[in-house]
Design a protein around this nucleic acid. Structure first.
Length: 848
DNA sequence: GCAAGGTC
């Protein structure tokens, strides 16, 4: 049997479609869809199906010396999410005599293929192998390539493997050193890596430049020319740095009522059409239409899996020759883009091409017609962007008519520039770039012009701007940091680690400390050179000029030297790191005694405490801090002079607490006022259910039974902003008023009956969980095994919403006291309980 | 609980 292995499922399906035509049959092997015809099978991987790691004996961060990781054994481990594919490969491997590796045509693709081959070799050492290399999945190219199979490039795969090992060793050793030395263990650990650290350094360096920037004042001088077509001209000097000089000029000209046109230059400016989309350029243009890099990639992936656009992760800016561009454009004759397509087809199609041409994937282009109704609004925005960009790459240049006029006013030259778009060219297809005409009247040399007045604008030079996410991705690409698929993830990682916040991106003090320490003691990991050197070495490995082993050894030796320094200076570094880390926790003056308040850990999560403790015991609570990391931003509350606070949770939008004192006062006021809006009768005791403000600034619904012996609660879905409106509609089933959340500038969100909405939401969570599988079932078993114990009445019932049945469940999960509950991770706990969401747990915790 | 690279 012949087995073809591709990098992803979608390519397996498409290649089978081309090679087998209609005889392609889908066969499930160990739960993996494969395609079969006659003696040949095609299976798709999911990228790397195995990874590398250290043996379990190195797992304890405190007990293992970080330095030992440099020379620790490295083992291959199957990727947890892809165990099915691994076993399918083993199963098929036994009955196969030849394997064709048809993964992506790049370095990682070669490695991914060799990894799969090695899995098969384990069960079938005599297997024969070859390689199919293609740059676009078109029938012509695929058929051709499979007629001319080549050999696997094991050197190329070895180059990829050297990268894996070097990244793991440097990343893990430095991450552990930083975390252990600064005692930042658990989820607040401090990380370092070949790509993330230089990226973080870029952000920190830019912030330092901004801090060091001294603004310089300057002035601009304009003349206003009235008439049918009023316009302004600017003094030729552009910027006056010397106020006295400006004053002298103004004194000379101020009573001038006219000027003479001394020079007129007419010209033409052409703008070439844009080049085909690669990932970075796509992300930048998506941010123009208001979509963040992470969202743009998520949406693009979605459009790709649904067959609307081509593969979105590509560096290529040249359409492969095998791509049938004409039929792609013609396809749009039957769409809302008809007029654009037919205009393009009037002439032969000549696409632009960019500088970079790669072999793995084509540039991003549309592959099918979509209608606006079919897609969500952001999806349509992205789809339209890809379509219009595709069109623009065939369009003509746009042409501007330009006019430059010099006007002499009492011996001083004033200049006016005009530009009018005369041939829109590609701009007609691709209207995302502003193209404002600057219209000047048709002037002739010698003409006398009126001057109505002079305007002086006083300005200052601006510090370099902070990086926006899209800009940062571009800079990373220019420096060779990361890949098209990882750059936006690396930036996300910096947010998750609380190294940065906001957009444009701002570093925290922790980032300053980490970057400073690494710069001083482990320079190679904070500069892009490590990546460029690695790239060069990988090329040499590929050309068989040096070995993988020698590259790895050299890298380990370098890290050994670095660790000598790190170990010798441990105390000093610990102190430096902790200083910076403390600065990151400083919130502002204590309202009671004026001392410095800072974020501090307690058994129940983080809180803000006074530096004068125990003399001053004033505290502010930070309710959601159990679920994420606290970020102190540089925004300061005018009233309390406290820094605004954010709670960052990996993979989620940060929770903006704002000024923690304002937040606390708001909550206390709401508690005191007690006029909480009533939603309806409590399903358990018939008292009023009311909307309460949670300590985190969020909202939830609770029973207001005055005796406090009913503990029914309902969470509310999470837009924390906007007004909660209780409507007149009443749920027939639960008797509760429907609610909606109204935010300014957005259409209101109808939640309906909060009870129904909660049940609905829980169902969805359960479905998600059951899809994950594996982990959950063992958790449930465990909870049953220990569940028989917790029987007595528990302090847990003091919390709203917890009755005897839930106490029993909680007991089974090892939660017996309020303290247990307060310190539990809601997500983990929710997995151990039956139909109790992590939000519900979070609400309990917030009410402790 | 570490990296970065695939893929979803």
């Amino acid at each position: 049997m012949h087995l073809i292995i591709t990098e992803k499922h979608s390519t397996a399906k498409r290649i089978a479609g081309i090679l087998f035509n209609k005889s392609s049959k889908m066969v499930r092997v160990n739960g993996v869809n494969t395609y079969e015809s006659g003696d040949t099978s095609v299976i798709g991987l999911s990228g790397h199906v195995v990874g590398i790691d250290f043996p379990d004996t190195y797992n304890n961060w405190q007990k293992t010396d970080a330095r030992d990781l440099i020379h620790a054994d490295i083992i291959t481990v199957p990727d947890k999410r892809n165990t099915k594919i691994v076993s399918a490969l083993k199963k098929l491997g036994k009955v196969v005599d030849t394997v064709t590796i048809a993964t992506d045509y790049d370095r990682e693709g070669e490695l991914i293929g060799v990894e799969a081959l090695n899995i098969i070799k384990d069960v079938n050492p005599k297997i024969k192998s070859n390689r199919a290399r293609y740059s676009a999945i078109t029938p012509a190219e695929i058929r051709e390539v499979f007629k001319n199979l080549s050999l696997i490039d094991f050197n190329l795969a070895a180059a990829g493997e050297s990268r894996q090992i070097i990244d793991l060793v440097w990343g893990a050793a430095l991450t552990r050193y930083l975390s252990v030395t600064s005692k930042r263990l658990g989820k607040r650990f401090l990380s370092a890596g070949r790509v993330q650290s230089p990226t973080l350094a870029l952000i920190v360096d830019r912030e330092k430049e901004r801090e060091a920037f001294v603004p310089k004042p300057y002035w601009e001088l304009y003349a206003v020319h009235p008439g049918e077509q009023q316009f302004i001209s600017k003094h030729r000097k552009d910027r006056f740095w010397d106020r006295e000089e400006l004053d002298r000029v103004v004194a000379r000209i101020q009573d001038a009522k006219s000027g003479t046109v001394s020079d007129v230059k007419r010209g033409k400016r052409t703008e070439k059409p844009p080049t085909p989309f690669n990932t970075t350029e796509f992300i930048r243009e998506a941010s123009r239409v208001g979509i963040s890099p992470a969202n743009a990639m998520r949406i693009a992936e979605n459009l790709y899996t649904n067959g609307f656009i081509s593969y979105p992760r590509t560096d290529n800016t040249v359409y492969p020759k095998t791509l049938d561009l004409k039929s792609l454009v013609s396809m749009f004759l039957g769409s809302t883009f008809r007029e654009y397509a037919s205009r393009l087809l009037e002439k032969p199609l000549k696409p632009t091409s960019g500088k970079k041409e790669t072999t793995d994937h084509p540039p991003i282009y549309p592959v099918a017609i979509a209608s606006k109704e079919q897609l969500k609004s952001d999806e349509w925005k992205i789809y339209e962007l890809v379509v219009r960009r595709f069109f623009a790459t065939f369009a003509d240049a746009s042409i501007w008519k330009t006019l430059r006029v010099v006007i002499e006013i009492k011996g001083e030259d004033f200049v006016a520039n005009g530009a009018v778009l005369v041939e829109p060219g590609w701009r007609w297809y691709y209207p995302y770039h502003t193209s404002d005409d600057r219209i000047l009247p048709d002037l002739e040399a010698g003409q006398v012009l009126d001057v109505e007045k002079f305007d002086i604008e006083s300005k200052t030079t601006k510090p370099p701007a902070r990086y926006g996410q899209a800009r940062l991705i571009k800079v990373m690409e220019d420096l060779g940091l990361g890949t098209k698929s990882t750059r936006h993830e690396i930036i996300q990682k910096l947010y998750d680690r609380a190294y940065v916040h906001g957009n444009p991106v701002q570093p925290t003090k922790t980032a300053y400390s980490v970057v400073d320490t690494l710069k001083k003691y482990a320079t190679p990991v904070v500069v892009p050179d490590m990546t460029s050197k690695l790239e060069q070495d990988m090329d040499l490995i590929t050309e068989a000029k040096i070995t993988e082993e020698s590259v790895i050894k050299e890298s380990r030796d370098m890290l050994d030297k670095i660790f000598e320094d790190l170990v010798n200076n441990r105390e000093k570094i610990a102190e430096e790191l902790r200083d910076g880390l403390y600065n990151d926790q400083v919130v502002g003056p204590c309202p009671e005694c004026g001392a410095e308040m800072a974020v501090r850990p307690s058994r129940f999560g983080m809180f803000i405490g006074c530096g004068n403790y125990p003399d001053c015991t004033f505290t502010l609570s930070l309710p959601s801090s159990r679920f994420g990391m606290v970020v102190v931003t540089d925004q300061v509350c005018e009233e309390h002079k406290m820094h605004h606070i954010q709670i960052v949770q990996s993979g989620k939008r940060p929770v903006e607490i704002g000024c923690p004192y304002c937040n606390q006062l708001k909550w206390e006021a709401a508690e005191k006022a007690g006029n909480d809006p009533v939603v309806g009768p409590c399903p358990e005791c018939r008292s009023d259910l009311v909307v309460k403000l949670s300590r985190g600034g969020g909202r939830f619904i609770r029973c207001s039974n005055p005796a406090q012996d009913c503990s029914f609660t309902l969470p509310l879905p999470s837009p924390r902003y906007g007004e909660l409106i209780i409507t007149d509609t009443i749920c027939e089933e639960h008797g509760l008023h429907h609610v909606r959340i109204a935010s300014e500038g957005k259409s209101p969100w109808e939640i309906g009956c909060p009870y129904c909405s909660y049940i609905e939401w829980q169902k969805k969570q359960d479905e998600k969980k059951s899809k994950k599988g594996g982990k959950k079932s063992t958790g449930t078993k465990k909870s049953r095994a220990t569940g028989s114990r917790g029987k007595k009445a528990s302090e847990l019932t003091k919390i709203g919403g917890i009755g005897d049945a839930i106490v029993k469940q909680l007991g089974g999960a090892g939660i017996k006291t309020l303290k247990d509950l307060a310190t539990a991770d809601p997500e983990q706990l929710s997995l151990k309980l039956n139909k109790i969401s992590k939000n519900r747990i979070a609400n309990w915790q917030a009410s402790i």
